[in-house]
């Protein structure tokens, strides 16, 4: 934004913690292509990757204060500004048979009334607006297993795993049964190598790009979280746009959703065969006691987030039963 936007062009600066080649890293650039085309170049998006414009919490604060125009980040992290935004990351929230479409439907800031309510509150509390979401990938458990892989929460309780230091994530992992510990993400490979932890959970692309796979021999497809990536924007910057420009941004997110799904799905096969080729065993959901994982996760979320459970139930549509 600002002085050098001249000539009727608004240039929005977008940051992402991820690298090129992933949905997370490329979503802002895709959105930029669409928006530039639709507005005849009156809005451009400069997409920065690899946290070039700042770390995660910093970037969320920057979007809130207007120092950064846009950011692509899981909703759970905006929870550091406004806790209820974590509802979209609740474990086992979306339809396991059709998770991506379900995410798009339930997080849509225009059509889903519940999403609208959460986002309106987010805006009024933090000046952060969500334009909608793309999919990041499904979070799965990776482990070092000596004999038989654990198939239910009780068996998983014999493992110590690294938890992401965000309440929704770490509660979900505890619910899956694991002993959890907080260590910095940068230290995970080393902690796995030396056995001070035996596992962690992340989507396939991160398991691969961070090198975590080098120190693991099992992947359990617990599929506990289908994380939506919010495309967030500073409210002041958003309100400076015309109504039609705002609409183009909303439409743009919807427009790039199929591309995100496609990228994710086509990458997924590659990731899986890469893991198998490198000697990792993948345990599919059919071989896990998914009911046990799901009901443990949902009951723990129910007891740990009493203020949010109403919204989560509404989002789920069927009461989020244990």
């Amino acid at each position: 934004m600002g002085l050098f936007g001249g000539g009727g062009t608004t240039t929005l600066r977008a940051n992402s913690p991820a690298a090129e080649g992933s949905v997370h890293g490329d979503a802002a650039a895709w959105l930029g292509e669409y928006v530039s085309e639709e507005t005849g170049g009156s809005i451009e998006i400069d997409a920065y990757r690899n946290s070039e414009l700042g770390g995660q919490i910093e970037s969320i604060e920057n979007v809130s204060s207007g120092s950064l125009d846009m950011y692509v980040i899981p909703y759970a992290l905006t929870g550091t500004q406004y806790q209820p935004a974590q509802v979209f990351d609740a474990p086992y929230l979306y339809d396991p048979d059709n998770p991506y479409e379900d995410i798009y439907e339930k997080t849509d800031p225009q059509d889903s009334e519940i999403a609208q309510q959460v986002i309106d509150d987010l805006v009024s509390e933090t000046d952060i607006r969500s334009l909608g979401a793309v999919v990041q990938g499904t979070r799965r458990v990776t482990l070092n297993v000596n004999n038989e892989p654990p198939r239910n929460p009780e068996e998983l309780s014999e493992y110590t795993m690294r938890a992401v230091p965000i309440a929704m994530y770490s509660e979900a992992l505890k619910a899956l049964g694991a002993q959890t510990t907080n260590i910095d993400f940068s230290e995970v490979p080393q902690a796995l190598a030396t056995g001070s932890i035996q596992g962690q959970e992340n989507p396939y692309n991160i398991i691969r790009s961070s090198g975590i796979w080098e120190n693991q021999n099992y992947i359990l497809e617990t599929n506990h979280m289908h994380s939506p990536l919010a495309v967030i924007m500073n409210e002041g910057v958003f309100q400076d746009l015309s109504e039609s420009e705002q609409q183009v941004l909303y439409d743009g997110v919807r427009e790039i959703q199929p591309r995100a799904t496609e990228t994710l799905e086509s990458n997924l096969e590659g990731h899986k065969s890469f893991m198998r080729d490198n000697g990792l065993t993948i345990v599919p959901p059919e071989d896990l006691e998914m009911d046990a994982f799901r009901s443990a996760a949902r009951s723990r979320i129910r007891s740990q987030f009493p203020d949010l459970i109403g919204t989560i139930e509404q989002l789920h549509g069927d009461g989020y039963p244990a």
Binding site: E61, S65, G79, T80, Q81, Y82, T126, P165, A167
Partner: peptide, 14 residues
């Protein structure tokens, strides 16, 4: 000073 106002309701994770 302005940041103290802007982020008055938020807390560090965990």
């Amino acid at each position: 000073v302005k940041a103290m106002q802007q982020f008055r309701d938020s807390t560090a994770p965990l």
